[in-house]
Design a protein around this nucleic acid. Sequence first.
DNA 1: GTACGATTTAATGG
DNA 2: AATCGTAC
Length: 612
Amino acid sequence: MHIFTKTNNYLPKGVSIMNLLIVESPSKAKTIEKYLGAGWRVIASVGHVRDLVPENGSVDTAHNFEMKWQIMAGKEKQIKLIIDELKKADAVYLASDPDREGEAIAWHILDILKAKKVLTGKKVYRVAFHEITKKAVLAAIENPREIDQNLVDAYMVRRALDYLIGFGISPLLWRRNLGKSAGRVQSVAVKLVVDREREIESFVPVEYWSLAAACNAHGAKFNASLVSANGQKIEKMTIGNKEQMDAVLSHVGVPEIAATVIAIDKKKTSRRAAAPFTTSTLQQEAARKLYFSSKRTMSVAQKLYEHGLITYMRTDATNLSADAVNDIRAYIGRIYGDAFVPKSPNIYVTKSKNAQEAHEAIRPTHFDDAMPNLSGDEEKLYNLIWKRTIACQMTNAEFDSVAADIENNAHSAIFHAVGSTRTFDGFMRVYTESRDDDADAAESKLPALSVGDAVVITELTPEQHFTQPPARYTEASLVKKLEELGIGRPSTYATIMSTIVDRGYVEQDKQRRFHPTSGGWVIAAYLAKYFNELVDVNFTAKTEDTLDDVSNGKQEKVAALRAFWTPTESMIDGARGIKTTEIIDEINHVMHHHLFPDGNDKCPKCGGKLGI
DNA sequence: GTACGATTTAATGG
DNA sequence: AATCGTAC
């Protein structure tokens, strides 16, 4: 097969040379076909077209990890379309996405075309563009390259590894009836939920007390909290019970208490807008603001994308095209005024751990005033994306913050009061990101205070608190955690959530927070005992390093797979040889009270409840 | 009614 | 060393 590195012109005027260009998404194909015009046919592969045969032996571990591929269900149609059009064409441009999976799609298509022997006399080019503009597409066509075999090899390592883990471990679970499936991604997701539940169970709440003071100065009311009593610094956990609170109160006095401002600290602070949406942050924010599930968010986003209203919704990048930034800045200036347009565009660095950056951030495609006519869900999500995108290119919000120390005139207690006033809206005029902890520092006003001012403490409110266990994961916070760990991809976050529910490992309560089921406890305990390395959160990170090495040609594919498979195979063999009774003992020992909450049997080892 | 074969991974796309 | 669905 010959891949030429030099193309003939992309649109020879009046000459009907036919060029075929293949992309992944049909709606992208439609757009690009318009850009290229006569002489070009643009066809979508509609994602991957070929995959491992879903049966045992598709990765031959005994023979250099040779892989058995098959055309995916329903994709024969696309292949036939590509071949039919190719027959009429002189050249084919493989323009799948510029990332690892996209390179693999190009390779698979080329491999299929070679096998079908339909490339005789045809030129083949690999082209890549990062945005769907006429300029970018034409530039890509002018600068074709060959398929990057290192990147394809990295894909194959990733693909083989996922298969070997999933198809290696799952059958062990069926035999013992411990679960339906295991995998590099889903099993870590389950582990995270189980680990969190264990943290919650072992959490011992600690009592602490706070003392709030209602204050009055110059006829204005405000609140302060105790930070020092009888010369002792009072921190969050200092007052541990009612007796200690009473002791402290004896030093503070009984309202009304005469006091004085002894220190003032004034500061100007500012707050930056959040980065534009990625798949993960869109799912998080749509959950917090609209109460959408990950699945619902993605299916609504899909519709907006198909309507041509937003850019691609499966992305891990936060960058915006230069054209979009210009349009957004013009819009902000027109609607909100120049004070809301930063001197230079705000730039957001993509911080996702293994971002592939094949796409832009999720943003509206155009920025005129006309609001499209949309269904309820579509309108809500589009509005959210609209506001977030506009806000991300607006100036900072500015605040004046004041902190005051107030001492009682008996010099035995000091209170601290804080106030914050927004002096310039900036991006907050349009949009503010929600937070998971609703400790969202609400604006609080203080009257104008100076050192020496008289203050009257009119009321003291002692309050009992207990430290709180960490919160159970929601879909949004679990997706966020997985992304931080570099586990899973934008295209899979929503399906990971359904997989762990469908497999019966976790369930969602009324507030849609994840709890492990007894099956979830079992599988987590089993995997932690016999496959700990594979479900360790660092495993995927290490794997990504290996994949990077393969992409860069620093490590060879077969060597990388062998390094992974040798220990994994012995783990699988080891687990296969373990007697069921041993597994039951192990799981019972770790998990007895979750497995058999209503059982009566006592575990001989620890006196806990025992089942089976 | 019994025997037997399939079950399973993650990541593209809609 | 389980369970479910399908073929016989």
